[in-house]
Amino acid sequence: MTEIRGERDSSGGSAQARRDRREQTRSALLAAAERLWAERGIHGASLDDIAAAAGLTKGAVYSNFAGKTDLLLALMERFTADPGIDVCDELQAAEQDTDCTGRSSPRQSAPDDRARRLALLLVEFWLYGMRDYAAGWRIADWYAERRARLASDLPPADDMTPTDRAALTLALDLGLTLQHLLDPTQVRPDLYKTGKTLVQRQTP
């Protein structure tokens, strides 16, 4: 009986070690996919490329994900679950970091590499979702979850529901971010504060 218990303990420990290794493998693949898909596009980086960038074999991809769409959806899940991942961080920071003239501080003058990579990835998600139904519904859910979070902080105003105002705010967030990343001189970060005031202002 002692030997059997020992085997069970050993098996349990091995199972935990396998789970840990599996999680490390998934994290490495997700990180590689995020980087390569932002740099090359989803159709420009194969599963072989992602596996190689993660220091793994293609078999490791298929032992963790059913295919490219499954890997993409897992990456979307990570974006949704982590509130710290936000392509609009730079513009939102500028809202709190302006002087009395409305100009942003010098540290906000150049786009952040992380923001640029996230913006590229978000565009790639959108394009892929427009062409692939399985990915499209999850990406639509991502937008819906963001709108819901925004709406929870917005009271009705100007005969517009919080949900509608949240949709306009999200359009401002993403649209202005993409313009700013392309042309930070002409589309300044402090425009975000002005736009948000216009979209979210309440009726007197």
Rank of each mutant, 00 (worst) to 15 (best):
K196E: 10
R116F: 08
R147A: 08
V123Y: 03
P184Y: 15
L191H: 07
P189R: 07
L120I: 00
A94K: 02
A93D: 11
G136P: 10
E34V: 01
G102R: 06
T161Y: 09
G55H: 04
A151C: 05
S27H: 12
R78H: 03
S109H: 14
A115H: 08
R131V: 09
S152Q: 14
S27E: 12
Y128M: 06
T194D: 11
Y62E: 02
T163K: 14
D112L: 05
G44E: 01
R103L: 12
D132E: 15
D159V: 08
T2Y: 08
S109V: 07
P155L: 08
A94V: 03
A51E: 02
L73P: 00
L182D: 12
L36C: 05
L191A: 05
L118A: 03
R40K: 12
G44K: 01
R78Q: 13
D159S: 15
L172W: 11
F65K: 00
R165H: 04
D48F: 03
R78L: 04
I4N: 02
L172I: 13
L198Y: 07
L182S: 10
P155W: 10
D49S: 07
K193G: 10
P189Q: 05
R21F: 11
L71K: 00
L120A: 10
M130R: 13
A135L: 14
S105Y: 10
A134H: 10
L71R: 00
T194C: 07
V187G: 03
R165S: 02
W37K: 00
S109W: 15
R107P: 06
G84D: 11
L121D: 01
K196D: 02
L154V: 14
S10G: 11
A110M: 12
G13F: 13
N64R: 03
D153M: 10
D159Q: 13
E90T: 07
R201N: 12
A166N: 06
L178R: 09
D97A: 07
D113C: 04
Q108I: 04
A167Q: 13
R26F: 03
D70L: 00
F65T: 04
D97H: 05
L168G: 08
A140I: 12
G102M: 11
P155E: 12
S109E: 15
L30A: 04
A66S: 09
Q202T: 14
P189H: 06
Y133A: 10
D82A: 13
R147I: 12
L75Y: 00
T98C: 09
